[in-house]
């Protein structure tokens, strides 16, 4: 039953893959905008690279969040799922996982390429990738709460962005400073551990909160 629920989420997301590829394309394009705006000077770009990649990742995630529950909510499928025997928060957790697999993971995979294009020093690569690997699921988790809260709003995209962006600040800070520390030759253990702690916190709280928010939207007449 649970496996089925996850397979359904994944399949649904996969069928809408063109929508999900767009954020990834957006991510690459935003990263490419920075050298065009700031100049292609390697000395200038190298220290900024991790920040650029992280900001682009955050923006791309925000762009993709709106689609997390909307389709199923409009179809009424979400209401049926709420009534099914699988606990609703687990279904929500599967949805978040599927969302991350199809938008967060490609960003992580593409990030070394972009880091290279932005002249990031080679010592920083590992911490950038590990940071994104821990950080992008947090973006999906916090974003799921925002997406659940705004699922009924017709043009919820901008409200969702306003709501979620301030909450992304810690992840942005920890994620983008880790490669800088690594470039100076120190192991950015503190940042990555903090990201890990936030991930654990959000993995426990976010699916429940998002499920609660969705219920408020389903039953709020």
């Amino acid at each position: 039953m649970r496996g089925g629920a996850f397979r359904y989420e994944f399949l649904q997301a996969y069928r809408r893959r063109s929508e999900l590829v767009n954020p990834v394309v957006f991510f690459v394009m935003v990263c490419a905008m920075f050298p065009l705006a700031l100049g292609s000077n390697a000395q200038l770009l190298a220290p900024l690279a991790s920040g650029i990649v992280w900001v682009a990742a955050v923006l791309a995630t925000i762009l993709s969040l709106d689609q997390m529950f909307r389709q199923d909510f409009d179809d009424g499928i979400l209401e049926q799922m709420e009534l099914s025997e699988v606990p609703f928060y687990q279904i929500v957790a599967f949805k978040i996982l599927a969302h991350w697999c199809l938008t967060g993971l490609p960003l992580v995979i593409l990030s070394p390429l972009l880091a290279m294009m932005l002249y990031m020093p080679s010592e920083s690569y590992l911490s950038l990738i590990v940071g994104l690997l821990i950080g992008t699921p947090i973006l999906s988790l916090i974003g799921a709460i925002g997406a659940a809260l705004t699922v009924k709003i017709r043009r919820g995209n901008i409200v969702l962005a306003l709501l979620v962006m301030p909450l992304y600040v810690p992840i942005l800070i920890f994620g983008s400073t880790a490669p800088l520390m690594a470039a100076e030759g120190t192991v950015p253990a503190a940042q990555l551990l903090w990201l890990g702690a936030i991930l654990v916190l959000m993995a426990t709280l976010a699916p429940i909160t998002a499920a609660l928010s969705l219920r408020a939207n389903i039953y709020g007449s």
Partner: peptide, 10 residues
């Protein structure tokens, strides 16, 4: 601001 805009748009 996020909370206010959320309330106003639902």
């Amino acid at each position: 601001l996020g909370i206010i805009s959320l309330y106003q748009s639902i």
